[in-house]
């Protein structure tokens, strides 16, 4: 295989309402990226996006997973959950809008900054979801 075709794939399960484990996947992703010598600014952006993805899965979904693929020219982070979907994507992408529970808000989550942070930190951002369906967010970071 040519050097440019090699990829590293990392996959982490994220459980519904597992607040105590939230951050583990993004910490591990950050460690791996640092170990292979990715630029610190890119690592920080990926770490923020991965963390927000984890928190979203914990707070809003029935559980899911975060997959990271590292190739020679980009890092792709995919957050894919089992539902129950986002009713209004436009609202969900608005800074400050949140449907988080009171319990989550008391813990300082639910600022309505998660998806905007993910879009802001990534070079390419796409989200697919609808009410009752799975949500899939794909973020690409150029190296």
């Amino acid at each position: 295989m040519a050097e440019s075709e090699k990829t590293i794939k990392l996959e982490y399960e994220v459980g519904k309402e597992e607040f105590s484990k939230a951050g583990l996947a993004s910490s591990n992703i950050k460690k791996v990226l640092n170990q292979i010598g990715i630029d610190a600014k890119v690592v920080r952006r990926v770490a923020i996006a991965a963390y927000e993805s984890e928190i979203n899965i914990v707070i809003h979904s029935e559980g899911g997973k975060i997959t990271t693929e590292i190739s020679h020219d980009k890092i792709t982070v995919i957050a894919h959950d089992k539902g129950n979907g986002i009713e209004n994507l436009e609202k969900a992408m608005t800074k400050g809008f949140s449907t988080a529970s009171n319990e989550a808000r008391e813990m300082g989550f639910g600022a309505g900054m998660g998806l905007p942070n993910m879009k802001r930190t990534s070079d390419q951002f796409s989200i697919e979801s609808s009410k009752g369906a799975e949500t899939r967010v794909e973020m690409i970071f150029n190296i």
Partner: peptide, 15 residues
Amino acid sequence: TVQTHLNIIAVASLL
């Protein structure tokens, strides 16, 4: 911060 739960460490560490 007045938050004291486990997740503040993840945020501090990531940033």
